[in-house]
């Protein structure tokens, strides 16, 4: 990616430093990770960081039991009908699994320093669990709940029972045994948000298989030039969607 440009600018800098001995101390700096750029616009051919499509096979984060529960959940949040296949067949559970196994699940970008205090709703999530940790705890608590109420796993419930449980989580009528700073409501919101992300994101992340949601909406996906249609007011856009990896 940037390696070539970085070493190029380092060479350039070392060359310029050689003529100005007083700058010698800076040489160490440029062998570190900071980067000096001067006298040029950095350029290296084929630079870029394209996304890597996920492997659709197997589970990277979920245990088999968790995967079955999440597949059942996404299939009720997004049920199969004449518009699209269900959330499971669209790959939403695979999407969530890969997200949890990656930097999103590990909270790599978030502020995770202590102290952890129970906050106000306006202050957002204040718990100490990563998104992956929230799924692990939340799915275990959900299994505990369905075993208590139905003596079954979530996946073994009828669709109507599954909807009743999800409704209970959504409306606050069911309270799972989680931990302070992580409410049932927050667990449900996380699952709902991630399911919708999977359903509507580019298929390369594992969900939205066959661009099912984009076709349903009439969203053309990764196309980037609508100059031929901006003036055509109230006229349906004629072309089908394309994905980043060229699926059409």
């Amino acid at each position: 990616m940037h390696t070539d440009a970085r070493s190029l600018s380092r060479r350039r800098l070392l060359a310029s430093v050689a003529a100005v001995p007083i700058l010698a101390a800076t040489a160490d700096f440029f062998s570190a990770s900071g980067r000096s750029i001067s006298g040029q616009v950095p350029w290296s051919p084929f630079a870029g960081a394209p996304p890597r499509p996920v492997n659709p096979l197997g589970w990277y984060f979920f245990t088999p039991g968790e995967a079955a529960a999440v597949e059942a959940i996404v299939d009720r949040l997004i049920p199969a009908d004449h518009l699209t296949p269900g959330g499971k067949d669209c790959g939403c559970a695979v999407f969530i699994d890969r997200q949890l196994a990656g930097s999103f699940g590990q909270a790599n970008s978030l502020y995770t320093k202590a102290p952890f205090a129970v906050g106000l709703p306006i202050q957002g999530y204040q718990g100490d669990l990563t998104p992956a940790g929230r799924y692990r705890l939340g799915l275990r608590a959900l299994a505990d709940y369905t075993h208590g109420a139905y003596k079954k796993d979530f996946v073994q419930l009828s669709p109507a029972e599954q909807d009743a449980v999800l409704n209970g989580l959504d409306t606050g009528k069911i309270v799972l045994k989680l931990k302070p700073g992580f409410s049932t409501r927050e667990f449900f919101e996380l699952v709902l948000q991630n399911t919708m992300e999977g359903f509507f994101a580019d298929p390369l992340y594992g969900g939205n298989r066959g661009m099912a949601s984009w076709k349903m909406l009439g969203f053309p996906g990764a196309r980037y030039d609508y100059r031929d249609h901006i003036d055509k007011h109230n006229v349906r856009y004629p072309r089908d969607p394309v994905s980043i990896y060229g699926e059409a």
């Binding site: 940037h2 290296s44 630079a47 970008s109 980037y224």
Partner: peptide, 25 residues
Amino acid sequence: GPWRDTASDFNIAYIQDELRYGIRK
């Protein structure tokens, strides 16, 4: 932050990625 430029960091082949840039920011 890092150096950023159009061709390398806002590449037209994959910048239209709502999840990566719009949601994961």
